[in-house]
Write a protein that binds this DNA or RNA. Structure first.
Lengths: 110, 110
DNA sequence: AATCTTTATCGTAATATTGCAATCTGAAAA
DNA sequence: TTTTCAGATTGCAATATTACGATAAAGATT
């Protein structure tokens, strides 16, 4: 086997898993954080910022894009990447909900 | 190749990636959500709740535990699993910070 | 047009993940 | 003690991910 059985879970569960999985690599965390740091989102130098070869960075960007975490617009011969707020908000809400539900629950047995 | 180059990134980046990676699978999302749903955290029937074989569930639980997302206490011959609030809070804060920084930034060029 | 610059894609090797049957471990019950 | 039960571990096959060199694609520059 080796393939994830996505069809056995709800769409919501798969959606959260997809987003989390995309962030589940330090290079992609670093990309997100670099996109945050830079004021303008015309960022043609992500490759120089990361300790990885250009094809590897390109691949990570593609995965972030597929997961819906970043958007990319063609800007001349460079590409303008930036974070998709909606995706981040989804994650924030998800973990926020869990957090508040946990603190409300007094029966903390562990 | 094939191995993640964790030593090229900061501890913080690796920490977030580890947490996110652990949630990056629908079965593990389902486990977290089941632990939320059940009032008491003496949960010996996670296997029955998931569409996966017992060894597979056990492995997913192990990964969640290794990532620090859940805690497990031996309770007789069953095991009491529950969510580790701190880990969830870390994620909530992380995405919360990104979210607020993004909304403050008016230069939304994409 | 020829060249440069930037990013994507292809191909491939190394490693990791997913899933399960079989088996083991350890505590409780008979 | 023997059996039973819950859960972990082992071993293995299928698949996915990570990483990069080589190369391609496409707009910019000369």
């Amino acid at each position: 086997m080796g393939a994830t059985k996505t069809d056995h879970f709800t769409d919501k569960q798969n959606a959260i898993a997809t987003l989390a999985k995309a962030i589940g690599h330090p290079a992609r965390v670093a990309i997100i954080e670099y996109l945050m740091k830079v004021d303008t989102c015309i960022c043609g130098d992500i490759v120089n910022e990361l300790p990885l070869a250009q094809p590897t960075v390109s691949q990570h960007l593609k995965e972030l894009k597929n997961a819906g975490l970043i958007k990319g617009n063609i800007e001349g011969n460079a590409i303008c990447y930036c974070i998709d707020e909606k995706a981040i908000e989804k994650l924030q809400n998800y973990f926020g909900n869990i957090s508040t539900k946990l603190t409300n629950k007094k029966s903390n047995c562990c």
